[in-house]
Design a protein around this nucleic acid. Structure first.
Lengths: 357, 357
DNA sequence: CTGAAAGCGCTTACAG
DNA sequence: CTGAAAGCGCTTACAG
């Protein structure tokens, strides 16, 4: 491995000058810079990330905490983040958040604290208060995406509005007997019971559903708790469809749950959308295949936005260190955590239609 | 941030001793070790990864090169890798391989060479010779998974056997007019034309298909090139079904392509499996929803295996450095790159049946 | 088993 | 604009 000293020697300058020429920090004459860069190029020099990090305190690396990364939604967000980080020269290290308490503790108490990352983006629906506190104690920018509100600067879609939009689409078609399949939130992903109500995504979608139903004077809104999976959606729909008064429309809290609903309907020869309308949430990439009506929340774009926001937070931090020039209140680069809610959009396809009769 | 010096001071030992006590390297009295660990615990000490890496040369970090991470298959492999790395204390940094030549060059010539990773796992179907050479020049273990053969130690399934197994399942049901939808390989993912034939996955699956057809004395095997996507499968199937002699069975080179085939069939009122049998490859998580018959290749397990193999390669390297005690030939930890092929398994569901009549 | 010292390869005040 | 020097926070021969 050729080192910076090799480059400096080849260019006939000191190591310090070589460093400045290559990094662009500090004043350097154009001639010297060119000479050093040529030498670096000729020698195939690449700066050691660890040495550079240790000396500068900048890791040029963002940590991303993800639960279940083989779920399309998270993979898509991840891809969005990576898309924006790479061109800025930042690496992305992945931290998988499982349900295993020991593993979680190790993640928050050790892995994230090893100084390997400049900031952390957390994509998780369920964190304990201790975990949020641990993130705060990192002394680095932390940004949530899709995390419960409170405790963490975060980017989020207005999930109450999402629930309302989905429900109003069905109401607008003339449905009255509408059921919502969502996640029961008496326990979180880690099995920790008793989270504050009304703060997380499933709960907010449900609130939006209930509010829309109430506003429309529709009969008691039916809610069925289920896992956020195809199987969860399937089983919940089966119960509904086999019940006394099956709904004419189902609002599933995710597209994958909606796929399960479609399967349950097919098994029972309940025709969609003639006998049953179905709407999901996410904008899953296979939604077109199923002709699924959904609320797209653009996960890839969410990832891109999160990456941009993180980069801005790091920039702010750097700027703050540089002096008082940039006043925080008016700075265009100020933390985007207080940004307007992320966009979502109703995509009407073939699984929703007016009820029969 | 509390440093190792703080811990050493608190425990009343030298920094060197504190380091040994915490890392477990070198001989330490049990009493000293306990004292140091207690101090570290009390102070909430976590070693700086960058300092440790710089001093030891071990990054405790594996780089994973992935194309399109929001494709289920890759996300699943990635999850498998992460699953095995975390408990061993290794971080995982993600390198996204796009089709942009500049970005690719930067990845191989710079990012991967910054000394941030101890080894690299490459999940990609298409690398140029230059890129393979760059990986070789890293001076660190590199392991391919699903990469073309040659040039890189790699774990792989026997894709010729996969193609054969899928085809033989259809032949066994009595089909003779079978079409295969796969990827044309005159150009690779980067648009680089002219790769060596017979080395990559799509080509090998196709060879298996052709061999099985020939062995069975079946008429000229029909091959239709397409993208490895739902849309690709759909369009290719549309052409086949609208042709003069539509096949009675289609073997799609991926489950997502098979979904496209199913859609094309449905659009034409071609009933599956009565009028058309369909088989895919992968073991996609939504396969059950479509009742899709497939060749499962257990991507999550592939990721786990790849991680284990990489860890073994790193272990070997360390062992080699320790002396001649472990002879390479008999070592149980020797590189697993030459391991038996990865397993796959036929999963028969509802989309395949004997042809009519 | 333990400690003093050098070193990993950069970056960055501090002088000039 | 450039250089000498200290330092980032660990690890690891080398002695003892």
């Amino acid at each position: 491995m050729t080192s910076l000293d090799d480059v400096a020697r080849a260019a006939g300058v000191s190591t310090a000058t070589a460093s400045r020429a290559l990094s662009g920090r500090g004043r350097i004459s154009a001639a010297t810079r060119a000479r050093v860069r040529a030498a670096a190029e000729a020698l195939g020099y690449v700066a050691s990330a660890t040495a550079s990090s240790l000396a500068s305190g900048r890791a040029q690396n963002i940590g991303v905490v993800v639960p279940i990364m083989d779920r399309w939604f998270f993979a898509s967000v991840l891809d969005g983040i990576a898309t924006r980080l790479a061109p800025r020269g930042y690496d992305l290290t992945l931290y998988n958040l499982t349900d295993d308490p020991d593993q979680r503790r190790r993640l928050f108490d050790t892995s994230l604290r090893r100084g390997r990352v400049d900031g952390v983006i957390v994509l998780s629906v369920a964190l304990t208060d201790d975990e949020i506190a641990a993130l705060g104690g990192l002394g680095r920018p932390v940004l949530g995406l899709g995390v419960p509100r409170g405790g963490l600067p975060a980017l989020r879609v207005d999930d109450t509005a999402v629930g309302r939009a989905a429900t109003e689409h069905l109401l607008g078609l003339g449905h009255r007997r509408i059921a919502h399949i969502g996640q029961s939130v008496t326990t979180d992903a880690a099995g920790t019971p008793g989270r504050t109500p009304d703060v997380d995504i499933p709960t907010r979608r449900r609130r939006g559903f209930e509010a829309a139903m109430a506003d429309a004077g529709a009969p008691a809104a039916v809610f069925v708790p289920a896992d956020f999976t195809v199987a969860g959606g399937h089983d919940a729909a089966a119960r509904l469809l086999d019940g006394d008064e099956p709904p004419t429309a189902i609002f599933a809290a995710s597209d994958e749950m909606a796929y399960g609903v479609l399967t349950a309907a097919r098994e029972r020869d309940v025709h969609v959308p003639r006998d049953l309308s179905v709407i999901g949430v996410d904008g899953h990439d296979l939604g077109g295949l199923f002709e699924l009506t959904t609320i797209d929340q653009f996960p890839h774009a969410q990832g891109e936005r999160a990456a941009e926001a993180m980069l801005a937070m790091l920039g702010d931090q750097a700027a703050a260190g540089e002096g008082a020039a940039a006043s925080d209140a008016d700075s265009p680069r100020r933390t985007e955590a207080s940004e307007p809610a992320l966009p979502f959009s109703l995509v009407v396809r073939g699984t929703t239609a007016p009820p029969r009769g």
